[in-house]
Design a protein around this nucleic acid. Structure first.
Lengths: 163, 163
DNA sequence: GCAATTCACTTGCATTTTGCAACCTAAAAA
DNA sequence: TTTTTAGGTTGCAAAATGCAAGTGAATTGC
């Protein structure tokens, strides 16, 4: 069982309970896409670059919704489409994702530009504040662009316009 | 596939790469046990209260080791036993776990005492510093005790007593 | 000294989850 | 009206998980 939705009541530890909901390969990536890239639709998540299968994506969206991390609302401009939006509980994951991002950038071989990571690390509060502002104002512009696989060329500053 | 060990090279995003190693139900719980409870042996992890199966535990320990999160060293005092110890990379997960703990305590129904969580939240840097001190000095006393299920639901006293 | 116990796993097997491709329905576009 | 698009569902094979039982080496009890 990779991620029990039925809450097998393991221990009362907050870390354990958090992992009941988020402890899998995809859930936090979806939250990341919503939080920092401004993605809102099924299709955007699907093509976010990690290759999630559509059935898994549908399942994770449903579990995140019933876990209170996000909610879905019909897209006003297109009757076929649904917009997913983080709840207050979901956006509160910002510090977790930020620390995970910083850790990964320091300790794994990622494509993240070092300067950007250093800047975030030294301005954690500002990054969190900006994340909240974007959420409150429904600002869909990316906080960070997707780190494209730029294979080896580490110093290429690619269009990191500004938040 | 719940947690690919073979690194399918998804994207260069640090969050994604972090989750390649840690994105499952158990890995971060093991790190938590080592970091805040001072657990070091297979047996301690096994009986940490979440009910991990021994084959899964062995698998996760091996993956965390090959991921550079921990290393194993023979126990000096007992030739049968192995001590697991976090590496610098592993202890650097402290902020991630702290934020996950705070988030879970606020947004899930946990057994964590609110006062303790509030104190940690207002003294993040001190908590991290103390975590590092304990690690450097190999201090095995628990930073936090396991949150016992002090509330009503006493589920099933199934034969977890002993073997 | 020797049997019993402990520690750290491993093995087999049934169940569950995942990944993949194909398919479906409603709404919008052409 | 036909075609395309968005957001899924379904079926199936492969992989991961959970569980119980077993293994072998080191250690303890007597």
């Amino acid at each position: 069982m990779a991620r029990p939705s039925k809450a097998k009541a393991r221990s009362g530890c907050p870390v354990s309970m958090s992992l009941d909901l988020l402890g899998d390969r995809w859930s936090l990536l979806i939250v990341r896409d919503m939080m920092v890239r401004g993605y809102r639709t099924f299709r955007e998540f699907q093509h976010a670059g990690e290759g999630i299968a559509t059935n898994i994506l549908a399942d994770r969206l449903q579990k995140l919704e019933s876990g209170g991390i996000l909610k879905r609302e019909p897209a006003a401009e297109d009757g076929r489409s649904t917009h997913y939006r983080l709840t207050a509980k979901g956006i509160a994951l910002a510090p977790v994702l930020l620390e995970l991002l910083i850790w990964g950038a320091h300790h794994e071989n990622t494509d993240a530009p070092c300067a950007a990571i250093d800047a975030m690390e030294q301005n954690r509060a500002a990054v969190i504040a900006e994340t909240y502002r974007r959420w409150e104002q429904r600002d869909p512009t990316p906080l960070l662009p997707p780190f494209k696989m730029q294979t080896k060329t580490r110093k290429k500053p690619k269009g990191k316009s500004r938040k």
